[in-house]
């Protein structure tokens, strides 16, 4: 069974706003090919103010699809259409206290239904802008389509390249065989062959930073991100402490309820993802217990 948060379970067992809204003037119908789930979102929009006065959902799907639909209707009720369009799938997932990586596409489906409904209200045609594939990297929820596109577009050659461009493979590393298979396939199509020992073409370019961060800047920004994550961890009775930063590796101590928690690895992966997003460069987060002696000496 999936490790669903209590919020997901609550929205599944007691869904809010189930059923179609009477007199709806905005309807979005989308499906996720990756699991066959489908959602119809019906909205009643005030034509003068563009405020969403009522929202209802009908979902053919799993527990997290129903929970994502339910929480979406709660989020957007009372919003203007423009504000509602700013709701991201991350917002939906956060409101549910997170979703398992394999289930993030349920929150994507929610956001897409909303976009489709708004387009329907405005008389526009909504088109999906991304294609979903099989999940390759479970740490960062990266699928095969995304990896293939990046390999093509950027002429990537090694697993390290793929990690630098997509984050895929940057966590537990269990998917490296799959990533190599993708590289083999794409490189063959390009008339080249995959060489695991090839030099990687990439410097970390997650967000193409203007100038590389100095170590001091990096430490300050890591501290700021950890600060922003702290309330969430403390809500679960845990905390995180930055011990040392060596180049692109941040060593942390998970304390309180986080220490020894089975979810610590997931939490660390989550922190790493946030750091990479905020800093725009590749950051590896490692428990301080795994810090090499040299690093300790350098830090001392």
């Amino acid at each position: 069974m999936w490790d669903y948060s209590d919020k997901v379970k609550d929205h599944f067992f007691n869904p809010k706003n189930a059923g179609a809204v009477a007199g709806a003037n905005a309807i979005g119908e989308v499906g996720s090919i990756s699991c066959g789930d489908a959602l119809r979102l019906t909205l009643k929009v005030n034509e003068d103010t563009e405020v969403i006065e009522d929202a209802g959902f009908q979902t053919f799907g799993c527990g997290s699809a129903i929970a994502s639909s339910s929480v979406l209707t709660e989020i957007i009720k009372g919003m203007t259409l423009d504000d509602a369009l700013k709701v991201t799938n991350q917002d939906i997932a956060s409101e549910l206290d997170g979703l398992p990586p394999e289930k993030m596409h349920c929150s994507v489906m929610g956001r897409e239904a909303l976009q489709a409904a708004v387009a329907n209200y405005r008389g526009e045609e909504w088109k999906d802008d991304h294609e979903e594939g099989a999940l390759v990297c479970k740490c960062f929820a990266i699928d095969v389509v995304m990896i293939e596109e990046m390999v093509w577009a950027n002429k990537l050659r090694t697993v390290e390249d793929v990690t630098n461009y997509t984050k895929a493979g940057g966590g537990c590393a269990a998917c490296h065989e799959d990533i190599e298979a993708i590289l083999e396939k794409v490189l063959r199509e390009r008339g080249e062959s995959f060489d695991p020992a090839a030099e990687s073409i990439s410097q970390p370019v997650v967000a193409a930073p203007k100038a590389p961060l100095t170590n001091l800047q990096r430490i300050k920004r890591i501290e700021r991100v950890l600060e922003s994550l702290r309330p969430q961890l403390m809500a679960d009775g845990g905390d995180v402490e930055l011990v040392e930063v060596v180049e692109n590796t941040a060593y942390v101590n998970m304390t309180g309820a986080c220490s020894g928690c089975q979810m610590a690895a997931m939490t660390i992966a989550g922190i790493q993802q946030r750091l990479m997003e905020e800093l725009g460069e590749f950051i590896k987060v490692v428990p301080a217990s795994q810090m090499p002696k040299v690093a300790v000496a350098a830090g001392a």
């Binding site: 989308v30 499906g31 994507v108 897409e112 999906d128 991304h130 979903e132």
Partner: peptide, 9 residues
């Protein structure tokens, strides 16, 4: 199948 035809992503 006709009444509900979602756009598949």
């Amino acid at each position: 199948e006709q009444a509900f035809q979602p756009t598949y992503a």
